[in-house]
Amino acid sequence: MQNGAPENRWFHLCMADDLASPNAFATTRVGAVPLVAQNIKGRVVAFRNVCTHRFAVIHGEPAGCGPLRCPYHGWSFDADGVPVGLPFNPTDFQLEAGERRRLALHPASLAQCGRLVFVRVAADGPSLEEELGAALFARLAALSDAFPRHGETAEPAEDWETIEAANLRLHLAPDRVLVLHSASPPGADQRFSRTVTLHPATADAELPA
């Protein structure tokens, strides 16, 4: 089903709420390619997580909150990936707007399924829905909407339903809890794997009538 090169496949990255606040970001790596998804002034965008100045990885952490700014010489990038803050530009680079646009970060593909955020290295290719199939896509979207609350970690039990999609493995105890395990993509370190435990919208639902 997913036998293409990793660069052409979608990988689950994080939940939409992880990127809800300005400057929130999440990163991963697919093959040799570091990726970042980041909220920049309310817009969520995805790029190769590699500075176009001299190639440093921009955000080293798997997730966090902070401007899209390179640690090496402090270049900062806008929502189009264009370097907008260049320390010493007047003395060292003298880059005008057009030249800066040529130095924009390379975009990555970004897609959402319900509240699940996916990224892909390749700019072109099937949509996330096409890759997952309409039925699975709809199921994941519905589940992610039905379990919006991050909560206490739960250990999946044997009798829970297991659903697999892309690098995701979901463990579902209907109406009670959804454990979502997101494996690190090929080439990525273990620290890029993520597990979240999600609960239904209202705690009341768990109470007996």
Binding site: R29, A32, V33, P34, R48, N49, V50, C51, T52, H53, R54, F55, A56, V57, I58, G60, P71, Y72, F93, L95, R102, L103, H106
Partner: peptide, 18 residues
């Protein structure tokens, strides 16, 4: 960070650094 980043743009010939 550069060691990690460089392979991530090696397929993009227009990214030569500046």
């Amino acid at each position: 960070a550069v060691q990690q980043g460089r392979p991530g743009i090696a397929d993009l010939p227009h990214i030569t650094g500046i």
